[in-house]
């Protein structure tokens, strides 16, 4: 037995901290979170660990205005499906942005934040959120939506 969140977060730490998924050497598909089986190739698939570059575009998004208690301090917050440059999507909060500026196609990069606290005395789960690319993220100033970084 383990305290709430401890083992379930710990065993995913690599994936959550560094966006580590896998790619199938047979068909070239990328997966995040890592999949146990390549759904395209099944037994012919050859999955290898792959750390994503952490760059992508917003595929769809919303502003959460009603959330469970542990997200109250952050409300309202932006959450999105981010399409990573490698071609797979994940779900993450978008931070360091004004709500009115978020749009489909916006360029974003991964940053490191607190994801969830398992109560005040419980463990803290850290991991990826995304923020718009800009000078302070080490990217071109005001990269416009849909325009990919070199």
């Amino acid at each position: 037995m383990a305290e709430q969140g401890v083992a379930s977060v710990w065993r995913r730490i690599k994936a959550i901290y560094t966006i580590q998924g896998n790619m199938c050497k047979t068909c070239g598909s990328y997966y995040f979170p890592p999949r146990p089986v390549c759904p395209e190739c099944r037994r012919k698939g050859k999955l290898e660990l792959y750390t994503f570059k952490g760059l992508g575009t917003i595929y769809s998004y919303t502003v959460v205005r009603q959330a469970p208690e542990d997200f109250k301090r952050q409300m309202p917050y932006v959450i999105a499906q981010v399409e990573l440059d490698e071609g797979t999507r994940l779900t993450a909060q978008i931070v360091n942005v004004d709500i009115e500026n978020v749009e489909i196609g916006m360029r974003v990069r991964a940053c490191f934040r607190k994801i969830k606290e398992f109560g005040q005395g419980g463990i803290i789960a850290y991991g990826y959120k995304f923020e718009p690319t800009m000078k302070v993220t080490g990217h071109k100033e005001k990269s416009s939506p849909k325009q990919k970084e070199p």
């Binding site: 952050q74 490191f112 607190k114």
Partner: peptide
């Protein structure tokens, strides 16, 4: 700091910059 930032997140961001 934002509500989801603390010493661990700030340290990671700074360290990633340093390594880069």
């Amino acid at each position: 700091p934002g509500p989801d930032e603390d010493v661990a997140t700030i340290s990671v961001e700074a360290a990633r910059n340093a390594i880069k």
